[in-house]
Design a protein around this nucleic acid. Structure first.
Lengths: 106, 106
DNA sequence: TTCAAGTACTACGGGAAACGGAGTAAGTGA
DNA sequence: TCACTTACTCCGTTTCCCGTAGTACTTGAA
């Protein structure tokens, strides 16, 4: 029940979801499996579907017609643009940070 | 007053702080200036000092003797190890995500 | 000398949302 | 029939992000 279980997170759920949807439309459960595999982070259902709903109301993802009991989502152009910007920031920050770690400390 | 002001964040404050301290010991205000410059994120005092206190009680940063009214901190070995792991995850995720964006979508 | 601006931090509280447990329900395979 | 997987909904708890306000000292220009 604890938010982020007192750990230092390297990415928030919304970014993980956008990153997963960047590969193509997926429904919620498929996103959970994808992030588990690709980011080694297991999103609980509350986290996933809550974040997904917020992303939708911000116009960053869009719900697709959906068959049976699955509710598939796809990333929008705005979502892809925002994701690209965030990923570039992450790439730059991680590169600089790792360089700092290599350089510094006796 | 809203947590993360309804935006999609690409890094949480604790990671930004560790990244800043990786370059060497700093006091709080210097961390604010550093993250503003290097990550283009302005941490408010509440965010910064709150996160710093949590990092300290988790043994990821350590308070130094400190002159005058400054309270300098340095990253611990545990903090550096955790930072390295998180930065590698970020680097991998951002690389894969950007590749996905380049490949996909009509 | 006065006053604005910068430095450096403390104290406080609201509220978004992360998180997981529990529940539901359909499908699959042994 | 039963266990397991898939796929999601609902809900309560807790974290902690974030800004505002306030304190206090220093510096420098008017």
């Amino acid at each position: 029940m604890a938010r982020r279980k007192s750990e230092v997170a390297w990415a928030d759920p919304t970014l993980l979801i956008l990153g997963s949807l960047a590969a193509g439309p997926k429904h919620g459960y498929a996103i959970i499996l994808d992030t588990k595999e690709n980011a080694d982070i297991t999103l609980g259902p509350g986290t996933l579907y809550g974040a997904l709903a917020r992303l939708e109301e911000r116009g960053l993802v869009r719900a697709l017609p959906g068959q049976e009991r699955r509710r598939p989502y796809e990333i929008t152009a705005a979502g892809a643009a925002l994701l690209a910007a965030r990923l570039k920031a992450m790439r730059s920050f991680s590169a600089h940070g790792l360089a700092r770690l290599r350089t510094a400390r006796p």
